[in-house]
Write a protein that binds this DNA or RNA. Structure first.
Lengths: 222, 222
DNA sequence: CATCCTACCTACTACCGCGTAAAGTAGCGA
DNA sequence: TCGCTACTTTACGCGGTAGTAGGTAGGATG
């Protein structure tokens, strides 16, 4: 279909195409399940081109990882940094905005999300996935630390917990784990509340964790 | 080491050996990274024997999955079911006991945990991993539903969130994602409080989420 | 219109790991 | 002591995939 091939494009454009295709295939098939042929086919391009622009399979995966992780971290950072009139500027408001940015990024770029988090983090690429994840958690800890009135190290377990909770809620929203579901219609079509999913999810998670975090902030002793 | 081979064992015992070895290797190398030869070597047994007792690689992995998932669910169910004198029997107490059981199971059988959760959940085996995970979340939802005074379906997103939070906290405790860490000693040796890790972790997570859950219970309207 | 650069493709090789077959060896009950 | 069978060693077929060698053609430039 669409014999886009044999059309000479600027390297920069092609590279972006290849990266997009790689993210798509990696998110569907996993790191090992995805073949370079499949990525090439998805990009409408031959395999050597994939190697020319993406390098080795591992390098290509690392590039995907880096791009998506950067997208997420950037989105959250700017969301927290900029005051938002629709939400207060206290701790709860900041938490809400950060979570909303997270859920927005994830629900609109679910392929990237899948690549980042639902891949084999064991084996050769543990370092890569782990590094990306660690960056996000680190960011969360930095945002949380002043809120809790402690050091960044002290905030780390809470940051891990929060990120994990957000992952879990995201999994629920995206429906299972992205695979086919057979049982009752558990999800996929959530009641349309006429509200953006990111707002709904962020409100849910804020409601669950904020009271506890607030209590921790007031009485950090134990 | 320990040339256990050439020792005729009851099929049932051998099967257990093979399963143990498979879980160990799968947890270290991942589903694709683990080779049947490696599993055979780990079990101190020849390859054909692995096939005799464990079947195909996929079947073997499914068996590992089932065993570990069952172990977790059983531990949590019994922990919640039996009243515990050291903790109240109200909602908070039940939550605490369930979490403690979860963390206890996970910290004492971290290989099984790794197999269950930190593997490629995409691709051909999404169904298997997803099913195991879903069972656990389902259990959590069933335990939460009466607490929140709603249906099991209504409790599902919260169950997902809780399970995700527990996963995140576990990742922090186990240090990174199980891979080698190079930077500063972020973890691995947490301050020994003279308390079981499961208790510490369960108390942390309870403190974070219980206030919010309690509030949801009192005012489930939005 | 001729030329050259290079983006791009077809076709191939090398390799790895699953799964099995064949033939022999040794534990253990009768 | 006999024999059953759990087990081992060795070897191989086969499917699939990472990565490459060398040929082809688009398109900017003179």
């Amino acid at each position: 279909m669409t014999p886009t091939a044999r059309r000479r494009l600027a390297p920069e454009v092609r590279r972006r195409q290849v990266l997009d295709a790689a993210i798509a295939v990696f998110s569907e098939e996993g790191l090992h399940g995805a073949s370079m042929d499949a990525i090439a086919a998805r990009a409408g391009v031959s395999k050597p081109l994939v190697y020319a622009h993406g390098g080795t399979k591992d390098e290509l995966f690392a590039a995907c990882l880096a791009r998506e992780a950067d997208r997420l971290v950037t989105a959250m950072t700017t969301a927290v940094g900029s005051g938002d009139p629709t939400a207060g500027d206290d701790g709860e408001g900041r938490l809400y905005r950060a979570l909303r940015a997270f859920f927005h990024a994830v629900t609109t770029h679910r392929q990237g999300w899948t690549v980042l988090y639902r891949q084999a983090s064991t084996g050769e690429f543990a370092g890569g996935v782990d590094a990306a994840r660690r960056g996000i958690v680190r960011r969360a800890a930095e945002l949380l630390a002043p809120e809790l009135g402690g050091s960044v190290e002290a905030a780390e377990p809470i940051a891990h917990t929060l990120v994990g909770a957000a992952e879990g809620l995201t999994d629920w929203w995206l429906g299972g784990d992205g695979a086919q579901r057979s049982s009752t219609a558990t999800n996929a079509d959530h009641p349309a509340t006429g509200e953006a999913p990111a707002d709904v999810l962020a409100r849910m998670l804020t409601a669950i964790v904020w009271p506890g975090l607030d209590a921790l902030r007031r009485g950090p002793a134990m």
